[in-house]
Nucleic acid binder design. Structure first.
Lengths: 177, 177
DNA sequence: GTAAACATGTAACAAGTTACATGATTGT
DNA sequence: ACAATCATGTAACTTGTTACATGTTTAC
């Protein structure tokens, strides 16, 4: 139930409307947690009912600005420090690798090449972005950079792994000739 | 809809019952794709109706052995080579990093240490397992090893990243003293 | 005036989890 | 005899996605 906590985390930095939060999900959180507009408004309603947020003010066009409550802050803190992150255990990229013996070695290698290229592109894009952002010593900046570096290291690891995997394939092929 | 493809991939190596598949998910696929017993039986029914699998034989205790059909093989092949893997875009481990500015620097560092330790343990467990398995040149073995090496590299990357992140935190703290 | 952006909501469906429910066979 | 394992299924619920539906305000 992390959508709830993502919303709490965003509201901890100041009140926002459902629309504002949507933008935040698209812009800053998109690589970490995604949410649809539909889901967001539904969750905000439930969080209001649960006392984690309140409608702080209403603006033009039916805009409702939500603010986090003390209860919400407590829940966020609890989730941050006392709930174990769930280790990701689903990857359809990796699932395919398991079944790659169903296609020819050339096709298998092609699959790995595609994954390598995708990772390389991702790596370059993120690296470029990282260089462009003027990071400073504020907590928001420091943690934002830490999160971004995860993506940079992850994509690099994937590209290196795919390269290594292709070598393994070639070695196995020449070994059984 | 990858549960379906995981099932097709498993059945491509030979017929199996729902119970057999459940074991396969728990044992070999658990780090890549998880499925509950409930979901599995439901999906097998739908796949049967869709013509991707057939009940090849019935055994004791109501056991139904499913076999992949030609249609199923075609769908598996299509998924393997023509459907783009969906890049994982959800990590509650990383989501917490984004909001770590809500707790004290010491608590933030503690969170990263916990993630580092988890990754190190995972890394050692997998490395140990990798060493123990007698790998050979058969496709199943080669691809199995490639998949396992992904986990090994990923956990190593996470441990290194967490260490680096802690250094960044300390640097930012001393920098703003 | 009109297009873009702001702003919220509902309905239908797909996927995934937990719990309940039942019973047969095998090994000791 | 009885415990472990084999074996399948359903119900209720949560989470997430896609599509539909509506209306306001701002900037040009």
């Amino acid at each position: 139930m992390s959508l709830r906590h993502a919303v709490l985390g965003l509201l901890a930095n100041g009140p926002a409307s459902g629309y504002d939060l949507m933008k935040a999900f698209e812009l800053s959180l998109s690589n970490v947690w995604s949410a649809t507009q539909s889901q967001l408004y539904g969750e905000l309603g439930k969080m209001d009912a649960a006392g984690l947020v309140v409608v702080a003010s209403e603006g033009p066009r039916g805009r409702k600005e939500y603010a986090i409550t003390e209860e919400g802050r407590a829940e966020l803190r609890h989730w941050l420090l006392e709930v174990e992150p769930t280790w990701v255990r689903r990857s359809d990229m990796l699932l395919r690798v398991f079944f790659l013996n169903q296609v020819s070695p050339e096709e298998g290698e092609g699959y790995l090449t595609a994954q390598q290229q995708h990772a390389q592109e991702q790596h370059e894009t993120l690296l470029d972005l990282e260089k462009r952002i003027p990071w400073d010593d504020t907590p928001l900046s420091v943690y934002g950079r830490i999160a971004m570096m995860w993506g940079i290291r992850l994509s690099q690891t994937q590209a290196e792994w795919a390269e290594w995997a292709k070598e393994q394939l070639r070695a196995a092929r020449s070994g059984s000739d």
